[in-house]
Design a protein around this nucleic acid. Structure first.
Lengths: 342, 342
DNA sequence: TTGTAAGCGTTATCAC
DNA sequence: GTGATAACGCTTACAA
């Protein structure tokens, strides 16, 4: 039987509990906090009273004394986006397991809004701050703050800050090594916006591996375009027309890979029999629904967020670890890659 | 020139400011808070001191006095997911514009974890709580809490709670009306998991409109399956085979619509010339990359989040508005629908 | 116009 | 074992 939510009432204070238990405030506090200088029977009375009054200690008062808020700030720059969310999740996870809560702010890529939020958070006496970027390129430092800061996903430009990012070059290497392991030798690189450092890093990683193995990069270089299916379709059309003997395509994102797969299917190539395809990001909604399912590089963003939080807690504990840390991605093999079938 | 982040130091207190300005704490407080009983010159001195010491008032102390934390809790059940994020964004937006901050917790669909987080948040003396569900079906109420609660996206089972949800039935109506406006008369409904109330609501809305117009629903009923492209492809194959004269397909999600579009293209149907297709959710990554771009129902989740926050602030202000509120979705027309071309 | 002092809800340090 | 009492940093009557 549904009941109306109860009227708001002033939450019980320690004084209320003490009075009901017939002890002093000090004793009540000791009893509830497990201090050992309390008679068992007294303790029981206090607990009973607390229970009955649904007493929950006022964290604001506790924090005022301890000087710490038990809270960390999390400023994100693209709450909408694909990349900041898992990072945020990981951080929330790592924090929630301890006894710290997360104050979330969305700055939407706006430096002014960011400044404002940071100011507010500092007023709330956060114990530390994580700044999650929207894209992996370096960003300006917030400068010296009274609390530790960790930059996640997008590193700070200042090498003395603590940052943690995904290893894009390694991601590129992993894709290329997988292609070689599948016996591919004539490989195209199709990636997104050339403005993104990440696009170049991934290409560089792949190139290192392919060059070392003496495999061919068709066109001699990667094709830069946009992070879209449309570009994937277009680029794949170009590549296939000019290099009919191509046997592998490494894509800079899963979206691009989806477009590439469409074009390959529609031009009569079999994946992976004729051409193997890898994506990047392991965005499951795209990768798992692809035909065939898409092999992709997973950046382990959630792990990145967790480590960001861990670095922050270390720094709060006085063991700051400055510099840029990296999280190794991993390749998730699926049906879009495999041995050649001549 | 990069510099090391400054050493942590005890933040300046009002007492520090007062001392530096050569006034009492009370005067410093009044000066900074714009109280009118302070000589202009004194105020200036205080401000100068505050500036120099980078003073920022300790929110914990202020809140302890005011009895409010200036903070709301936001418990989400699917930080990973597509639906809770925009809702969360809207709420964060609405809160951030005022002077309240958001404490974020992810409960991951686990009632126990939820309970735990709510308890923590209550200890922090949040002024109110928003609970964001993972799917639109009703969920158990948290029961009476000492602060107002708003359930967003997933309504509470208790009609005396305050909930806000998207209007799925209206979404179905909008899709159907659009089909009729495009001159379509033989329409298939392909949707997802039959366990979801939302799937049925959308179908019911569409059926109302189609029946009233005397249009045909092929197969007599919707085809329920999964929220996946795969199911969209399969279902479209069935429908097209059995009803070659079909001229419209209303899909329960954009993913399904993507699959439907693929099958239509591959069986030689032109979209929208032969068959018009609508999706649901307006998930841009899918809708904008579709061929052709997908007409879809946008649930305006960000608006939903904003309104959730607004309802919460109303309730905090004593003007609770219990019951289930709805946000009207809207149809975003794109190239996958249009007039028939015989 | 400024300063003194009480108090917000805790915890910690003492005496008793 | 227990209970005054002083903090924590701030706001706000109330006095001066």
């Amino acid at each position: 039987m549904p009941t109306k939510p109860e009227k708001k009432r002033r939450p019980a204070t320690l004084a209320d509990v003490a009075q009901m238990a017939g002890v002093s405030i000090a004793t009540a506090s000791k009893a509830l906090n497990g201090r050992s200088q309390v008679k068992a029977e007294t303790r029981a009375r206090v607990f009973a009273a607390a229970e009955q009054l649904k007493f929950s200690p006022n964290a604001m008062a506790q924090n005022l004394i301890s000087g710490r808020s038990g809270t960390i700030g999390l400023v994100t720059h693209d709450l909408e986006g694909r990349f900041s969310i898992p990072t945020l999740m990981g951080a929330e996870d790592a924090a929630g397991n301890g006894r710290t809560s997360v104050l979330l702010c969305d700055a939407r890529g706006d430096a002014l809004r960011e400044k404002y939020h940071v100011q507010t958070l500092l007023g709330r006496r956060i114990d530390g701050l994580i700044v999650v970027g929207a894209r992996p390129d370096p960003r300006p430092s917030l400068g010296p703050l009274p609390v530790p800061v960790v930059y996640a996903y997008a590193p700070s430009e200042n090498p003395h800050d603590t940052s943690i990012v995904t290893d894009n070059r390694l991601g590129g290497r992993q894709a290329a090594e997988h292609m070689l392991a599948c016996g591919r030798r004539r490989i195209a690189l199709i990636t997104g916006d050339s403005d993104y450092g990440a696009a170049h890093d991934r290409v560089d990683g792949a190139r290192e591996v392919l060059d070392a193995a003496g495999a061919e990069i068709v066109q001699g270089d990667a094709l830069y375009g946009a992070w879209s299916e449309e570009w994937g379709r277009t680029a794949a059309g170009l590549v296939v027309a000019q290099h009919p003997d191509i046997d592998g395509i490494i894509c800079g994102s899963d979206q691009i890979a989806r477009g590439v797969l469409d074009t390959l299917r529609e031009t009569g190539r079999k994946v992976p029999d004729d051409v193997a395809v890898t994506g990047h990001d392991n965005w499951e909604i795209l990768a798992l629904n692809a035909r065939p399912q898409l092999t992709s590089i997973d950046m382990r963003l959630e792990e990145l967020g967790r480590q960001a939080a861990a670095l922050l807690f270390d720094a709060i504990g006085g063991r700051a670890d400055e510099g840029v840390h990296v999280v190794a991605p991993r390749l998730i093999p699926r049906a879009s890659t495999g041995p050649r079938v001549a």
